[in-house]
Amino acid sequence: MKTELIYGYKLIYKEHMKLEIFEYIEIFYNRKRRHSSFNYVTVEEFNNQIKYKM
């Protein structure tokens, strides 16, 4: 996260950095990261599998 997000910004306000970190985690990281509890698929892939089974 430091390399991908924080080091790209210089002299950023604290509130803006909080927003950027939140967006990084919720929008990028959680959607791209594979979860072992979901049989190593992303959250989006898991949710799509559930939709198609119903």
Rank of each mutant, 00 (worst) to 15 (best):
Y13W: 10
I12A: 10
R31P: 01
K2R: 12
V43L: 11
Y29G: 02
V43R: 08
E23Q: 11
G8A: 03
L11M: 14
H35S: 09
Y52V: 06
E44R: 07
Y13G: 14
I6F: 04
M1K: 04
K18G: 06
N39T: 12
E44C: 06
H35R: 11
M1F: 08
N39L: 14
S37F: 12
Y13D: 15
L19E: 04
I21V: 15
K18V: 13
K2E: 00
L19M: 09
H35L: 07
K18Q: 13
K32C: 06
F22P: 00
H16T: 13
F28C: 02
I27R: 04
N30R: 11
K14I: 15
V41S: 11
E23W: 08
Y29C: 08
R31D: 10
K53M: 04
F46Y: 14
S37Q: 13
F38D: 05
Y29H: 10
E26W: 10
I12S: 07
Y40D: 11
H16G: 01
N30P: 03
E23L: 13
V41L: 04
L5T: 02
R33L: 09
E15F: 14
Y52F: 09
N48T: 03
S36Y: 08
F22Y: 05
L11Q: 13
F38G: 01
K51E: 09
Y29K: 12
E44Y: 03
Y7Q: 11
G8S: 08
Y29V: 11
F46Q: 07
Y13S: 14
F46P: 02
F22D: 04
E45Y: 02
K2S: 01
S36E: 14
N48R: 06
I27S: 06
Y9D: 00
E23P: 00
I25S: 03
S37L: 13
Y9N: 01
K2F: 01
Q49P: 00
N47V: 09
M17F: 12
Y40A: 02
K18E: 14
Y7K: 12
N30S: 10
K10C: 12
M1W: 05
R31M: 07
I27F: 02
F38W: 12
N47R: 09
R34H: 10
K18W: 07
E45L: 05
T42E: 08
F38V: 05
E44K: 08
L5W: 01
R33G: 02
T42I: 05
V41R: 01
K14W: 15
I27Y: 03
V43H: 02
E20G: 00
N47D: 09
K18C: 13
M54G: 04
Y9V: 01
E4W: 01
E15N: 14
K2P: 00
F22K: 11
I25V: 13
I21W: 05
F28P: 00
N47E: 13
Y13Q: 15
Y40I: 05
E26R: 13
Y52Q: 11
E45T: 09
H16P: 00
K32D: 04
N47G: 05
E4D: 11
Y7G: 03
R33N: 09
M17I: 10
M54D: 05
T42R: 08
E15W: 13
R31L: 10
L5G: 01
M17L: 14
E44L: 08
R34W: 07
S37D: 10
Y13N: 15
E4G: 03
Y29W: 12
T42M: 07
N39E: 15
H35M: 06
Y9L: 01
Y29E: 08
F46G: 03
L11V: 12
Y7H: 10
K18R: 12
Y7V: 05
